[in-house]
Amino acid sequence: MTALHTPITEEQIRALKVGDAVTISGIVFTGRDAVHKYLHEGGALPPGVDLRGGVIYHCGPVMMKQDDGSWKCTAAGPTTSIREEPYQGDIIHQFGVRGVIGKGGLGEKTLAACQADGCVYLHAIGGAAQVLAECVKKVRNVYFLEEFGSPEAIWELEVENFPAVVTMDSHGGSLHKEVFAASAAELAKRL
């Protein structure tokens, strides 16, 4: 188990390989379809959001507003990442992202960006909203809440020991490609 703390260095990322279990502590920013499309179309990050050495989390959390105006995260599992494939590689490159958390993996363009820029894809356990919400120690801020709605907003989360598995590394390795090829071969034998 490798413990990662944000901001993450390129060296730390390059040391990771497909199949490694990791934990993430520090700051992560949620971002999903609306945010990725917006950034890709040239939109600026709001002041206060810095992704350099940082981690984007494909997640639309359930947030409850507390009486004192703060937010409490009550469910925070990953959403399907592949929808961000058209945008992710460029965003990794442009903003210096070191880790992308999500589920289901991304495609060739992102894999190439991970290799070129030093980034990894961190697969969280899909559906494990409660276990992962427990790892969110604090909701520090929210951006684009009005424009994009709660699930699509950028939430700035302080996390501790958030568990994930490296399924795409910075050396061109992809567990998704490996498992697809192996399972397709097994299926062919059984048809």
Binding site: G60, V62, A75, G77, G127, A128, A129, Q130, A133, E134
Partner: peptide, 15 residues
């Protein structure tokens, strides 16, 4: 996660 969701009476999955 299943155990925690039931105990806290919160959604198993956020979707």
């Amino acid at each position: 996660n299943i155990e925690l969701a039931k105990r806290k009476s919160q959604p198993i999955c956020q979707d």
